[in-house]
Amino acid sequence: MADTKIDLLVIGAGIAGLLAARELVDKHGLRVAIFDKSRGVGGRMATRRDGDASYDHGAQFFSVTNPRFKTWVDQWLDQRVVKLWFEQFGDEPPMMRYAALPSMTAVAKKLVDGLELHRQSKITSASRESGEWILKTEDGNTFRGQRLLINAPVPQALEILDAGGVSLPSEDDAFLRSIRYAKTIAAMAELDGPSGLPAPGRLKLNPPEPIQWMADNQQKGISALPAVTIHSGHDFAEKYFDAPDDERLPLLVEAAKPHLQANILSVKGHRWKFAHRLTEHDRDFYANAGLGLWMAGDSFHAPKVEGAAMSGLLAADDIAASV
Rank of each mutant, 00 (worst) to 15 (best):
M1K: 12
A2M: 12
T4G: 03
K5P: 08
L8Y: 04
V10D: 04
A16C: 11
G17M: 07
E23S: 13
L24A: 12
G29P: 08
V32F: 09
K37Y: 10
S38W: 08
G40H: 10
R44C: 13
A46S: 15
D52N: 13
D56A: 04
D56N: 15
Q60I: 00
F61V: 00
N66S: 15
V73Q: 01
K83A: 14
K83S: 13
E87V: 10
G90N: 14
E92M: 15
Y98L: 03
A100G: 14
S103I: 01
M104D: 09
L111M: 14
V112R: 11
S130P: 01
G131P: 06
W133T: 08
L135G: 08
K136F: 04
E138A: 15
F143V: 07
Q146S: 15
L149T: 06
P155I: 02
I160T: 08
A163V: 05
G164I: 05
G165L: 09
S170R: 07
Y181P: 07
A182T: 04
K183V: 06
A187H: 02
E190V: 15
L205S: 09
L205E: 09
E209S: 04
W213M: 13
N217S: 03
G221I: 00
L225I: 01
P226I: 07
P226S: 14
A227M: 05
H231M: 11
D235T: 12
K239M: 15
F241W: 11
P250S: 11
Q261F: 01
Q261V: 00
H270L: 13
W272A: 13
F274W: 13
F274E: 12
A275T: 08
A275W: 07
H281D: 14
A289W: 01
A289I: 00
W294L: 07
M295Y: 05
A296E: 10
F300A: 09
M310I: 14
L314V: 05
A316V: 06
I319P: 03
